[in-house]
Write a protein that binds this DNA or RNA. Structure first.
Lengths: 219, 219
DNA sequence: ACAAAAGTGTTGCTGTTACACCCATGG
DNA sequence: CCATGGGTGTAACAGCAACACTTTTGT
């Protein structure tokens, strides 16, 4: 291919949601070669008529039938050989959605949720991209950047659920008593007065996040 | 302009160096319209034959006659109207160099160092881009990401100099005694045995950074 | 003599860690 | 009954902020 100052840019979106007190992400199975049967991040080629943010939003809507709760740009990938066919620059984005609201039958065929720590065979350099985005997302949770906790937990939850989510992010266990003292004492969470029934054992009290919260959770 | 899936991407590099215990950045005065006489970030249009990182390196070499000590990708800017002439996507990069080694006469004409808190009239959206990069850089210093302190201070320095630099980054004063106790006690800096002569008053002991240092300075 | 740097010490405050012990309640 | 969640306490410790006081050493 001749030298040119025009480039192909693709937007690659990792769509995240909380499920089972973990972060899961939405991937798509590739139906054609190359990498047929492998999984990939949803994405599309950027035209000269829209911004990266607009396009990211469109991709999320197409994949989940819902607008994203939040989007944020991630790293850019410009290696010449990241696509075997032609030179494509990949701009990654993080998007948040709510898994509960994304009905399975509203997903396009060949899509599924995955644990970022247990990815399937990934096409292209998408494994790298996910790892980069996941790392960024963990940092955002730890420091509650852009009030991201409120976006991940818009509804009620129990303290043990919230704790398990943090243990997933921090990759270590935390003491139950210290955790609840801290999180209630600092007014990170607020008692709703409701209770979570159904399971075995004593019902958990339901809390919601304090929307007036600033940055820095650091548990 | 017709719809197309090819885009023009420009790399915009903010080149930083420590001077006078502050971070300064290198800008270029624009010689032609639009924005004639305004200042801008050095940059160039990406061809389909090189990566963003390679190009960033080339730009730094051209501007300073030296290879960069460090480069890192920053935010991307894709607003449709950020260039009045045509749609250009701007990918920002941070680069570090050493001001001492960049002789003024080796700079291209119309280039100068500026305090990021006191910028001249900036062309396009470059003021936004610099602010974004500056913010990222401050975070990197605070958490010593990628051991960036070692890159900013490759040679000897006195504790008061190092302290002034941190006060610039943190935008507040810190106690002299607590600062030196912390920085020596944590082995962030190591005594070289040398002294800094020349000025008035008692000569300062010269220190260097501990190259074995991990992340997290948080002073 | 002076200015700038250095060294040592103290106190109080805050937050964290690592526990012990006991209670509550729906299934 | 028992699994799960909840509540209170506390002792040791680490880190930080805000100071006082003293000493050192080129110019």
């Amino acid at each position: 291919m001749a030298k040119s100052y025009y480039n192909v840019i693709e937007t690659l979106v990792s769509i995240w949601a909380v499920n089972d007190n973990k972060l899961k992400l939405l991937l798509r199975r590739k139906k054609e070669d190359p990498y047929k049967g492998y999984w990939m991040l949803p994405g599309s080629i950027l035209s000269n008529e829209e911004t990266l943010e607009e396009q990211t939003k469109d991709i999320v809507v197409k994949m989940t039938q819902l607008p994203p709760i939040y989007i944020k740009g991630g790293a850019i990938f410009s290696n010449l050989d990241r696509d075997p066919d032609e030179r494509v620059i990949g701009q990654s984005f993080l998007a948040l959605t709510l898994k509960d609201l994304v009905a399975l039958d509203s997903l396009e065929e060949g899509m599924a949720w995955f644990d970022p720590n247990d990815l399937p065979k990934m096409a292209y350099d998408h494994k790298n991209i996910i790892e980069s985005n996941f790392k960024d997302l963990k940092q955002m949770v730890i420091y509650n950047e852009d009030n991201i906790l409120l976006k991940l937990f818009p509804s009620d939850f129990t303290i043990p659920e919230f704790q398990k989510f943090f243990e997933f992010i921090l990759e270590r266990e935390v003491d139950r008593r210290n955790f609840s003292k801290k999180v209630i004492g600092d007014k990170v969470v607020i008692d709703t007065g409701e209770k979570s029934l159904g399971g075995p054992g004593r019902p958990g009290k339901l809390y919601r996040l304090n929307s007036q919260l600033g940055e820095r959770s650091k548990l």
